[in-house]
Simulated assay, not measured.
Amino acid sequence: MLAAILLSTLAMTLIVALRYLATSGFFAWLTARRRPGYHARLGPQMRREIGWSLASAAIYGIPAGIVGWGWQERGWTRIYSGWQDFPLWYLPLSVLLYLFAHDTWFYWSHRWMHRPKLFRSMHAVHHASRPPTAWAAMSFHPYEALTGAFVIPLLVFLIPIHAAMLGLVLAVMTVMGVTNHMGWEMFPRRLVHSRLGGWLITASHHQRHHEEYRCNYGLYFRFWDWVCGTDKGLSSAV
């Protein structure tokens, strides 16, 4: 049993690392194509971001591997695979529930890590990326990585979700984590400045957090920033 758990953990670590390298690598390439020279002088910084991110991948892989083994071998979790196990209308709802729950945890833990002592010991690594690049999405101190590694693995014990919808949640988490750190806005201006865009976080919004630190703490949605008065709008530099 222990060997199977270790194998599952190693597999999940490899999956998380490859997912990071593929997604960040693609958007770093896109940045170089769309904004030639934009990050040309940030080679040493980007190498540090990759190093921290691969360490974070190992931390994320541990709970994911244990949960993955438990789901397959012991029937743990509330992940289901039959399309008729729950009503079809629940499929998109489950995705929204996961994203909102994750966003809620991220907002409050992120804001907590901006307290001076915690910032120095945990969050300063992430903000050492000036400006952030596509490689910075998982560039965390191990302590910070631990705060995020258990969120999705915990949610699968609490909220039913189809395996395919869980894959969609992980895809959204990965893509938004990367695109929010590119330093330029890839989405159309008409979307970013639309009513829908006013509730979603993109690079324009998150860049301002990296500029001013004490605002725009959310991950997917601007809901908690609006409620708590920490939304300072979009960066003028993106």
Rank of each mutant, 00 (worst) to 15 (best):
M1T: 14
A3L: 13
A3G: 12
L7V: 15
S8D: 07
T13E: 05
I15Q: 14
V16I: 15
Y20D: 00
L21W: 02
T23R: 03
S24C: 15
G25E: 11
A28V: 10
Y38P: 03
R41C: 02
Q45A: 10
Q45P: 07
I50P: 00
G51H: 10
A55W: 09
S56N: 08
A58L: 13
A58I: 03
Y60E: 05
G61A: 04
I62K: 02
I66F: 05
V67W: 00
W71H: 15
I79L: 09
S81L: 12
S81I: 11
F86M: 14
L88M: 11
Y90D: 03
L91P: 01
S94H: 03
S94C: 03
A101Q: 02
A101S: 14
D103M: 03
D103K: 00
D103G: 02
Y107A: 05
W108H: 09
H110R: 04
M113W: 09
H114F: 04
L118Y: 08
F119K: 12
V125C: 00
A128D: 13
M138A: 04
M138T: 02
M138Q: 10
H141E: 06
A145S: 11
L146F: 10
V156M: 02
V156P: 03
F157S: 08
F157V: 14
P160G: 07
H162W: 07
A163I: 14
M165K: 00
G167F: 04
A171V: 10
G177A: 08
V178N: 05
T179H: 01
P188L: 13
R190S: 15
R190N: 12
V192Q: 14
L196W: 13
L196R: 09
G197Q: 13
R208H: 10
R208Q: 04
H210N: 14
E211G: 07
E212K: 15
Y213S: 11
R214H: 15
R214S: 12
C215N: 04
N216E: 08
Y217S: 01
Y217A: 02
L219R: 08
Y220T: 04
F221W: 04
F221L: 05
R222S: 07
F223S: 10
W224F: 11
D225I: 04
D225S: 09
T230N: 06
D231A: 11
L234V: 14
A237I: 12
